[in-house]
Amino acid sequence: MSIAIGKSLPAIKLAATGGREVDLKSYKGKPLALYFYPKDNTSGCTLEGQDFSALYPEFQRTGVEIVGVSRDSVRSHENFRSKYGFPFTLLSDPDELLCNALDVMKEKSMYGRTYMGVDRSTFLFGADGKLKRQWRGVKVKGHAAEVLEAAQSL
């Protein structure tokens, strides 16, 4: 089930970096850029995180919080975040609760084998908790800047 523009941020709780559990409802009242990526410490996911990290001060000036999500463990996220100095929260979704709620699980293939994986996607929610923009099948280059531009127009 895909989420449509104008729909609310799902009320889901997930384990997060910093030893916390984050209830997505807690972001209501503040715009949120929620980006999904396949795997910690892979080239594309590292570049995407670095791009969001580099633009983080500008996102903060617009009042938009950035949160990354993958199926990796919190421990993996902590190492990934620490290694690259990401200033934003990473959520662990090993049971694919949020992934399924936002329909980011897609069939992929590598080396002739098919499997279900995270489709690189970003969702921009307004302060009212409603979806304003979404990007699916994201290409990393220039993506964070595109999300920032959309965030600045909220």
Rank of each mutant, 00 (worst) to 15 (best):
T46W: 05
L102C: 11
D72F: 04
Y111A: 11
V64D: 00
P87V: 11
R133G: 04
C99H: 09
Q60I: 15
R61D: 08
F59Q: 00
Y115C: 07
G117E: 14
M116E: 15
F125G: 00
G44L: 06
L154M: 12
A101K: 01
D128A: 02
G117C: 11
Q50C: 12
T89C: 08
Y84E: 05
N100M: 05
G126R: 04
S92G: 06
R75W: 06
V147S: 03
K108E: 08
M105L: 13
D72P: 07
M116N: 14
P87Q: 11
K83N: 05
V104Q: 02
L47W: 01
L98R: 04
R71V: 08
H77D: 08
F86M: 15
D128P: 07
G129R: 09
R61F: 10
F86R: 14
E65I: 09
G142M: 10
I66Q: 06
L124S: 09
M116C: 01
H77Q: 11
D128V: 05
W135Q: 14
F80T: 14
D72L: 09
K139C: 11
A150F: 06
K130L: 14
E58D: 15
D72R: 12
S121H: 02
K106W: 01
G49H: 03
L97T: 14
A101S: 10
D51K: 05
A127E: 09
E58I: 05
L55I: 11
G126P: 06
E48K: 04
Q134Y: 13
Q50S: 09
G85W: 10
G85V: 08
Q152C: 06
L90V: 04
L124H: 04
C45F: 02
E96S: 13
D128H: 10
V104S: 04
E65Y: 08
S121E: 03
C45A: 10
K141I: 08
S53N: 10
S53I: 00
V74A: 03
P87G: 10
K141T: 12
E96F: 06
E65K: 07
D103N: 09
H77A: 06
E107C: 07
M116D: 11
P87D: 10
C99V: 14
D51C: 09
Y115R: 05
M116K: 12
Q50H: 05
V138A: 09
E149A: 13
V74D: 00
V138K: 01
K83H: 05
K132D: 02
C99R: 03
S109A: 12
D95H: 11
L91C: 01
N100C: 01
M116Q: 13
A127L: 01
R113W: 00
V67I: 15
D119Q: 06
A144C: 10
A101D: 09
K83G: 00
Q60L: 15
F125E: 03
Y111W: 13
Q60Y: 04
L148Q: 10
